[in-house]
Design a protein around this nucleic acid. Sequence first.
DNA 1: GGAGATCAGATTGGATCAGTTCTATTCCGA
DNA 2: TCGGAATAGAACTGATCCAATCTGATCTCC
Lengths: 223, 223
Amino acid sequence: MSNEALALDAAQNSVDQATRLIREDILSGRIAPGERLKTAELAKRLGFSTMPLREALRKLEGEGLVAIEPNRGATVRQLDRAYITDLFELNTELRIFAVRRGMAMLTLERIRELEGLAKEYRMHLEAGEDLEAIDCNRRFNARLVEFGGNREALRVFLRGWDTIFAFRRGYGYGTGRRRVMAEEMKLLIEALRRQDATSAEAILRMQNAAMMEDLVSRIAPES
Amino acid sequence: MSNEALALDAAQNSVDQATRLIREDILSGRIAPGERLKTAELAKRLGFSTMPLREALRKLEGEGLVAIEPNRGATVRQLDRAYITDLFELNTELRIFAVRRGMAMLTLERIRELEGLAKEYRMHLEAGEDLEAIDCNRRFNARLVEFGGNREALRVFLRGWDTIFAFRRGYGYGTGRRRVMAEEMKLLIEALRRQDATSAEAILRMQNAAMMEDLVSRIAPES
DNA sequence: GGAGATCAGATTGGATCAGTTCTATTCCGA
DNA sequence: TCGGAATAGAACTGATCCAATCTGATCTCC
């Protein structure tokens, strides 16, 4: 499991280092879905022996990021349409769950933190800094789920989020949704301030519907 | 990821076979949480060389079942109280989500299938066949979540369920809840028949509260 | 000209081995 | 008798080797 997504990698030995490097390469899009991961090639590129890489690939197989077929080696896992939409829907549900559960424990400080992140998001947006905006969006939502207080939900959410974005990178982002997103953050925070779970849930569901439409339109009809 | 929990293991090579065997040993409780998994010992017991076992353990590390510390080897992951309760709560939420989402797509045939499983559960209960009853309960709930139509939710649910039960095995089950459980299955099915999502959700939440209380009472106060 | 067999190169799978790190016992001194 | 250090053993880590398998290209035959 991605304990490392929360607590950082110890990464003292080659296996952990290699795992982290390959994982980053996949999630950042430097290695595309479907691409083969040959141990010899990775060994040369990353400077390890093939042994640690074999173990690293197995670990990533366990995480679901790569698929290993007997005698054919590892490939970056193909993410089909159903998988991505299921993942996305699940993540929306996790956010709603977190908001409902965390509403009572929300402090003013936490709301301010979310406001800060929303503001940062708008700034990056206006400056045209796409990558920073995306990262900020991730931090906003991760924090939102974290305030729900269920660490397992957060773990599942983060893995899903990263996988979805690794996928979207290949298909491009919809820039049209960006400004709406900033507006939705604002509305959500207001709902949180009012302790209005119903409104918050409605906002998240609307957001889900819009994002899902955008997502599906980019994916080939059947895959 | 436990693709194998859904699609069965191909298991042509030693690594996949070893992974499956060790996973079963852990989830069935034959190997206790915290116990060390020495490659040499496993190699002798399972009849493989140490090489495939190293990779198998890495894969299980990715799945979150074992923890590997540098130069100290693998141990069955320790499941603390917060982890288990978070997992349990998440699973309840996933069931509620599945019921809400799957309600509209419920056919009479599916409801009958659930009824069949509920009946089987009662029979095993009266016959005192605990293990069969537990397995039946798992199938009932897995089917319930599956009818929700979100395969990712199902995957997360199953992994959580298996982990929780691997944990409970060590602390013993509450036999007092058994008969209530059978009653709750019945009520849930009735609610599904009436397309009454609100009732169904209420039943699941009540069940969650009762189970959680039972669970927490068995765990040491702090761990 | 196309389909299937064949063969060489590339890649994975499993095994063994030396080096390093950790663990647990033992031994020595206070 | 207790505490700490030294040591011996066990286990893990990383590297290399060889066999088994796959991939892709060429060649032959229909």
